[in-house]
Simulated assay, not measured.
Amino acid sequence: MLPPDRPTPSPDRGSPAARPRASLWRALAWGVAIGLCAAVFASYGRADFLRTLADQLWSCF
Rank of each mutant, 00 (worst) to 15 (best):
F41M: 02
A54R: 02
S10R: 06
D55F: 10
T52P: 04
C37K: 06
W30M: 08
A22K: 00
S59Q: 15
R26S: 00
W30P: 06
P7L: 03
L50Y: 13
S59T: 15
P16M: 02
V32Q: 04
A18P: 01
G45A: 10
R21W: 08
C37T: 07
R13W: 14
A22Q: 03
V32W: 05
A54G: 04
A47E: 06
F61D: 11
V32T: 00
P16F: 03
D48G: 03
L57A: 09
M1K: 13
V32N: 05
R13C: 12
A29Q: 03
G45F: 05
L57C: 07
R46L: 06
A54V: 07
I34W: 12
P16Y: 03
C60N: 12
P4D: 13
G35S: 02
W58Q: 15
G14H: 07
S10L: 10
C60H: 11
D12C: 12
I34S: 05
R26Y: 01
W58R: 13
T52D: 09
V40P: 00
G31N: 04
V32K: 00
P11E: 01
R19W: 00
A47V: 05
G14A: 01
P20E: 03
M1R: 08
W25M: 14
L50C: 15
W58L: 14
R46H: 11
R51P: 03
L50M: 14
R13A: 14
F61T: 12
F61H: 11
A42F: 02
P4H: 15
G35F: 00
D12V: 12
P7D: 01
R21G: 05
P3A: 15
F61I: 14
G35Q: 00
A29H: 06
C60G: 11
D5L: 08
A33N: 10
V40L: 09
R51H: 12
G14N: 00
W30K: 08
A18M: 10
A33K: 07
A38S: 08
V32A: 02
L53C: 04
R46Y: 05
W25N: 12
A33Q: 10
G14R: 01
P11S: 03
S59K: 14
C60S: 11
A29R: 01
W25T: 10
S15M: 08
C60D: 09
L24P: 00
L28E: 15
T8Y: 06
P16T: 06
W25E: 12
F41C: 07
R6G: 01
G31H: 00
P7W: 01
T8C: 06
L50W: 09
S59A: 15
A54K: 04
L24D: 09
R51K: 13
P3L: 09
P20D: 10
L28A: 13
L36H: 05
F49H: 07
L50R: 14
Y44L: 14
C60M: 15
L24K: 15
D5F: 07
W30F: 09
D48Q: 02
A33D: 10
A39E: 09
R51G: 02
L50P: 06
R21I: 04
P3F: 04
C37G: 08
P4T: 08
R51A: 07
P11C: 02
C60T: 11
M1I: 11
R19L: 01
P4M: 15
Q56T: 13
V32D: 00
L50V: 14
C37E: 06
L50G: 09
A27Q: 08
W25Q: 15
C37H: 09
